[in-house]
Design a protein around this nucleic acid. Structure first.
Lengths: 221, 221
DNA sequence: TTTAATTTTTTGATTGATCAAAATTCATCT
DNA sequence: AGATGAATTTTGATCAATCAAAAAATTAAA
């Protein structure tokens, strides 16, 4: 019933809400996120509103209805289960699975997703540390600090990387930065807009604040 | 570039050619095969012809160009590799994988197909015995006789079932008719439009000619 | 060889998704 | 408050895919 384009819009709205911490999303954000013309996003918001998937207030923005959120988390679940499957079962690299998952998320049947989920042992996070919504669509986002806000010179564990670009992920992997790995932030320099990271295994290196903000960690006991 | 609808049309033309043994396919056959209105098929044939994927002669029919055939076999390869993967790796039943593969065939990347192909040990046939085209698009269809034409009271091996309907496949499985299994045709009755089959393991049973024509076998030495 | 039946193509319309560019509304800054 | 700039919505068009129904061509039958 719902087309794959609609799924993309819902997913975008959901993730934009998550990221910004605000459930009201402007058509401009959506247009930028999906790389479509502003008018295209506006038009789509009207049809989504007609389908009861978002509530739309002109010049203000949209927000997902419960039904819209349900669909969005289901797409997200499919995406993340597929990503983990590609890494765990198919032996692909975490840096290269996003694009494939982006395509498959629209066409993998629930039956197949559940089969994957089962094979993977009902996992809770994907290869980037992104949480996997339950089959019922429940998603619990934990609030981890990024390298910008965590403690200095304290043992940390990488729990999540909020970027899907292959190049960036390969760079991180090359420096030993992957979910599960231990690292430490040696210093931060506001003026230089950069900080020094020391991975457990590997040489310490510097990271710009923008990149650092995408690496989420938890303190190790 | 090529849309998933176009892939469906090419696949349909390819399979219809295969089935009928004639490379010239009428728009009516295509419309019937894809369950679209006749005019829709005609319109699509014009656009396929404009793209150089078929040669189209009004009121006569179409035939795939080399490029069209290349695309068609690639879709077929993806479909069949996925089907086998679903059975072999995901543990699904051969009777239920067609629908899933139908969806996935359009979105699984070549990289991923090759990964599956490798995991499966470069197989040559899918769970129904349908041959899998090579990565270069070469497909060799062997010409097996059906239960209608094979020898009577001779040991046979099922090599292929040319139908994808879950109900039919489950019926066959229930009677021990699956690619690889041994069977024997006990008798044929033209008037009754049916024949008796004896599977190696299981009771003998009768089968209508129409159903029997979908079961291809080879003689066992 | 005309007629009838079947198949194919045309025609006219619709739906979903998109864009560019014009018009409108909103917010901000003197 | 008025003007300016930015964001948003409208408008007018296009493209892909589809349908129903009318028109044309082909094939088969009488």
């Amino acid at each position: 019933m719902t087309t794959s384009t609609v799924e993309d819009y819902l997913k975008c709205i959901y993730q934009e809400s998550q990221r910004s911490g605000n459930s009201l999303i402007s058509t401009g954000q959506i247009a930028a996120g999906l790389k479509v013309a502003p008018g295209t996003a506006t038009a789509m918001m009207k049809t989504l509103a007609d389908s009861g998937l978002v509530s739309y207030e002109p010049y203000s923005g949209v927000r997902l209805t419960p039904e819209g959120a349900r669909l969005a988390t289901h797409v997200l679940r499919r995406h993340r289960v597929v990503e983990l499957f590609l890494v765990q079962v198919m032996g692909m690299n975490w840096s290269e699975v996003h694009k494939d998952a982006e395509l498959l998320e629209h066409d993998v049947s629930d039956r197949l997703i559940d089969r994957m989920d089962e094979m993977l042992g009902r996992p809770t996070v994907d290869p980037h540390g992104d949480p996997i919504p339950s089959a019922r669509g429940v998603l619990k986002e934990k609030d981890y600090p990024s390298l910008l806000l965590c403690g200095l010179r304290a043992p940390l564990r990488v729990v999540r990387v909020t970027d899907q670009e292959t190049g960036f992920l390969l760079f991180l992997e090359g420096h030993g930065i992957m979910p599960g790995n231990r690292i430490e932030v040696l210093s931060r320099d506001e003026a230089a807009d950069s900080l020094m990271v020391r991975p457990e295994s590997g040489k310490s290196f510097s990271l710009g604040f923008r990149a650092a903000s995408k690496i989420l960690v938890e303190t190790v006991a």
